[in-house]
């Protein structure tokens, strides 16, 4: 396998007496989708925030392209080519798609001594970049609030890719979406991968993850239960690992018993 673009080596993170992450290793290579799976409270958020420079690990190290890295801030991380797309997507609903696309990095055009926002370039680029990702905008000047959930997700991803992300961290990108919308986002993940971008796909939906994932890492109560390549594990095994297959079997038995006793 190629050399990982970003790598966590036996990272631990503590909040007071709480062990949020313990001895977790995780990496992503260019052009692969590495799924991070886990239940609520498993430590997914802490892991993302450590990867995106919000937290610094208490133990272990982060490596970017094989070299030890220390992120001072989320902006620092972004500059190393690691872009995080959070669930709130960092979009402003009342602003146009094009203005959102370039928010904080506005393209300027010179008119003599005056520098002004290059609306035409912004509109054209936003339109083309989204079109390349398979999203046909009706109008690049339409407010983001008029886009569907999936289209917004795609806009946030397309923006990160346009501004040179080598690794995309996607935080539950499909969790709030309907079936069709989710499939649009999954397609976009595959396209990003084809462009050589490493994707870290955080989800608790095994079905979505299994469709696009190359490798799968499961987190449970702050610890990694292992990383599996797609060839090593099938969907049902992954589901069992993820949902705690034993817990479900127990629950089923318990419910059957309850039904039986109420009938008796």
């Amino acid at each position: 396998m190629a050399e990982p673009y970003v790598e966590l080596r036996s990272v631990s993170k503590y909040f007071g007496s709480v062990v949020a992450l313990k001895d977790v290793s995780f990496d992503v290579c260019p052009g692969e989708v590495h799924c991070l799976l886990g239940d609520n409270g498993a430590g997914k958020s802490t892991l993302i925030k450590t990867l995106s420079g919000v937290y610094t690990p208490d133990e272990g190290e982060i490596r970017v392209q094989g070299k030890p890295a220390r992120f001072a801030s989320p902006a620092d991380t972004r500059n190393s080519g690691i872009a995080t797309v959070y669930q709130d997507l960092a979009l402003v609903p009342l602003m146009s798609v094009a203005r959102n696309f370039f928010l904080g990095r506005e393209p300027m055009r010179k008119f003599g001594p005056i520098r002004q926002f290059d609306t035409e370039f912004a509109n054209r680029t936003a339109y083309d970049e989204l079109a390349a990702m398979g999203i046909q905008l009706r109008d690049p000047e339409q407010p983001v609030g008029t886009l569907s959930g999936g289209e917004r997700q795609c806009l946030a991803i397309a923006r990160a890719v346009y501004f040179g992300a080598k690794v995309l961290i996607l935080d539950e990108p499909t969790s709030a979406l309907g079936v069709h919308q989710a499939s649009v986002v999954l397609k976009l993940i595959v396209q990003s991968k084809a462009r050589g971008i490493g994707v870290i796909f955080i989800s608790h939906n095994v079905h979505h993850a299994y469709v696009v994932g190359d490798r799968f890492t499961l987190l449970k109560r702050g610890k990694s239960t292992g990383t599996y390549a797609k060839s090593e594990i099938d969907r049902d095994q992954l589901l069992n690992l993820m949902a705690g297959g034993k817990e479900l079997v127990d629950l089923e038995q318990e419910l059957t018993k309850a039904v039986r006793s109420s009938l008796a």
């Binding site: 709130d88 960092a90 928010l103 904080g104």
Partner: peptide, 23 residues
């Protein structure tokens, strides 16, 4: 037409998103 104007809209529309994008 100015960069500042984009920031004004963003600051009022969704300050958190704006901050996350470096505005």
């Amino acid at each position: 037409r100015s960069r500042f104007g984009n920031w004004i809209f963003a600051a009022g529309g969704e300050a958190n998103a704006a901050r996350n994008l470096g505005v």
